[in-house]
Design a protein around this nucleic acid. Structure first.
Lengths: 272, 272
DNA sequence: TCAAAAGTGTTCAGCGTACACCCATGG
DNA sequence: CCATGGGTGTACGCTGAACACTTTTGA
């Protein structure tokens, strides 16, 4: 691996980029990336390993000339290899004690080792001072088709994996709380924003949707009523039947109508 | 007015305090303060007058050792003279073009004049550089008993007044959009957070509540059903009757139960 | 023709809307 | 005792939960 390539890769990671002063200081973006598979709601979380394990939500900073939504999209793109991910800003975390001095200390050492190993000259040794300060973090949650994601770990990540929502490792700082609130926000948004379909491939059956609902809300639904509820949103387009090979009636496939949300926003409320 | 007092007053204003480096840079807090009076939903907005009129939502910055909720509370306290105001963080505004260079230019001149007039020495001439940059703003809305508020204008404010929600003046930057989204958030929260009572004095009648609902949602409610809906929240404590002097049955006064929200959060959902 | 799952139709209870009725109060 | 507005009770219609029934499919 040539020196140029190594530098390029380093530049592409959030930890190495710390010396950049073209970011907004003391503001970060934390992303909770939800995926669904095998009756499990999963979250994509990288792990750093250096003198112990550290799990940290995928995060990054906001460039001076970048909308915060764009920044979130960029961070998600870097981690999932997918463009145009569905995302929702849900809460800002701004406690005064939100800094990670202990954690950063380890990162410094780790980073120094990396730079040493890749034999870069000392010019790129980052200045961490702005990064050790207290941070305000904007929380986003994202919904992705888990099969389309190609998880990307940064140079200092040991791994990046999908964790079952019930088996989330202890993360640094308030990251576990951020995740919990993301889940609450998702549950709260789901029937209003009709965004659950972003967890599915383009074509899906109503049974697939029911599975996801049951997983997210941790309860069962009665099949026939659920079917009606979903179809009455009028946001699905019925396609051909799905061949399953099973000895029973083939279910229809559906697709989320592109213009569905426009129509749906026109609601008429009754009198109380 | 002595020099010391003038300086103290200057320090208490957000515009003069710009040179302070103990704030988090490029982050601000914008507050939409809702009040209610005479069948009108009102918003408290200061006006600056210098080479034209400028309306700006009450705003401020976050101290390094201050939670963002504390910062919002402080800003609201400074503007309303009330401690412990009810507030909700509702959205972050982070477009890349959120700076107010044109506006700040005028403020600079205005500030310079003020300092000249108050005969302060030149040491307090602020450094505006960090303030001309692009800002990320955290939006809060507040609900207050309008009768308890004593609006406080800063030195450079020409006035600070309650504006009917339908007669909001054009504000700088995206402040009008922030206000619109605050109203949407309020409408969305109202039945869930049961926060509407913060717009009323401690004791109120159900008719008072209905008036506010009708104003906020711009629709009418049927009296008897509305009464039931509100009482079935089980968050109100019935007090003595209210003496009106009118030739009809006296309505009961109610008070919001302090522990109401704790109980209310325990909901049991039916099967679909 | 049978089993299994999808899709549709049909009760029935409960809630919310609408309204009737009674109560309290001061002139 | 009447007008006015507050408080309570009740009929009715609609929604949605529960379930029966029909349809489809491959073995």
């Amino acid at each position: 691996m040539g020196k140029e390539i190594a530098l390029k890769e380093l530049e592409s990671t959030r930890w190495i980029n710390l010396s950049q002063q073209n970011y907004i200081n003391q503001v970060s973006i934390d992303c909770v990336i939800f995926g669904y598979q095998d009756r499990q709601l999963k979250v994509l979380i990288p792990k750093l390993s250096y003198k112990g394990d550290f799990w940290v939500l995928p995060s990054g900073f906001v460039l001076q000339d970048e909308d915060i939504d764009q920044a979130a999209e960029r961070i998600l793109r870097e981690r999932t290899s997918i463009k145009g991910i569905y995302l929702e800003q849900f809460q800002v975390f701004g406690k005064a004690n939100r800094n990670s001095k202990e954690f950063i200390k380890l990162l410094k050492e780790l980073n120094a080792e990396l730079i040493e190993n890749t034999k870069l000259n000392t010019d790129v040794h980052p200045d961490y001072e702005w990064f050790t300060k207290r941070f305000i973090s904007i929380g986003y949650y994202a919904l992705v088709d888990i099969n389309k994601v190609v998880p990307q770990k940064s140079l200092i990540d040991e791994s990046i994996e999908w964790y079952n929502i019930h088996e989330i490792p202890p993360m640094v700082m308030d990251n576990n709380e951020i995740l919990e609130n993301a889940l609450k926000a998702l549950r709260n948004d789901i029937d209003e924003k009709l965004n659950v379909f972003n967890l599915l491939p383009e074509k899906f059956t109503i049974a697939d949707v029911q599975e996801i609902y049951e997983t997210i809300f941790e309860r069962t639904y009665i099949r026939t009523n659920f079917q009606k509820k979903i179809l009455e949103f009028n946001v699905l387009e019925r396609l051909e039947k799905k061949f399953t090979g099973a000895a029973n009636k083939a279910p229809y496939l559906y697709r989320f109508k592109d213009n569905a949300l426009l129509k749906y926003s026109q609601s008429n409320l009754p009198q109380i």
